[in-house]
Structure formats: structure tokens, C-alpha cells
Amino acid sequence: MKGFILISIAILGIFFVWLLASFDPAESSFFLACPFRSLTGFPCPGCGSQRALHDLLHGQVGSAFQHNPLVVLGLPYVLIGGVLEYSSLGNRFSAFRQKWTGRFAIYIWGIAIGVFWLARLLCSSCW
């Protein structure tokens, strides 16, 4: 059952990446708009992440950064963290893995998300 769920999630993930690579969320209606923004009218820290990922998949880092800098800066961290959490590498480097998702990382992420969100709310034209 667990294996089935993991495989299903992996397939959905690959499909989503394929969609993101094939279509530009800025121009196509394939993609779900941010529910938070649709409901409240305010942007959330994740708004623009689909456009940013699309640009990244096409190697356009600068344009991705304009859509959502948090995604661009955070992606390497999340990818490395995901490998550490879900592969045997995490056991081999268990101390490093613990540090990677440790207290310091939690505070940095908490502050980064909070500051970025606040900045967006205060200056909607900036990002």
C-alpha cells in the first residue's frame, strides 16, 4: 500500500513536471491559480512558483527569480533535503542530514517565508 502511494505520487510528480516544462503557466490555463490568492486577493509566499519552475526548467534563472525568488533560492536546499530524507544517503550521512533540517534551517526558513510574504503584501508590484 505504501509502495503504491509512493509510486502514484512519483507518477503525478513527473506528470506535473512535464506539464510545467511543456506549457508556460503565465500564458496557458492548464494550471491551477493560487487558491489563497483567489480567495483573499492577497498573494502568498508561493505565488509565482509554477511560473518560476517553468522558467527554471528552460534555464531562465533571472526570469524565474522575478516570479518567485524564494523558489529559486530554496530549490537546491529542498532537492538535497529530499535526497537525504528519502534515500540511503541519509543514513550514511545521518549527522549531516540532521543538521540540514535542524534548528538553524527551520529558523532561516521561517524568517525567509515571513519576510518575503510581508514584503509582497506591502509592495505588491515588487514581486
Partner: peptide, 23 residues
């Protein structure tokens, strides 16, 4: 396991409030 990575992903790509509770 503290589920930080999963919570960050949830915050940015899915469900802001749930992700923040996770963090």
C-alpha cells in the same frame, strides 16, 4: 524525523496554512 522539507514544500506549492503548522 521533523518533516521540515515536506512542510516547506506544502507551504510553497500547496497549502500555506497547513505547511506553516508543519514548520
Amino acid at each position: 524525523k521533523n518533516y521540515l522539507i515536506e512542510s516547506i514544500l506544502a507551504t510553497i506549492f500547496c497549502c500555506l496554512p497547513l505547511g506553516i503548522v508543519g514548520i
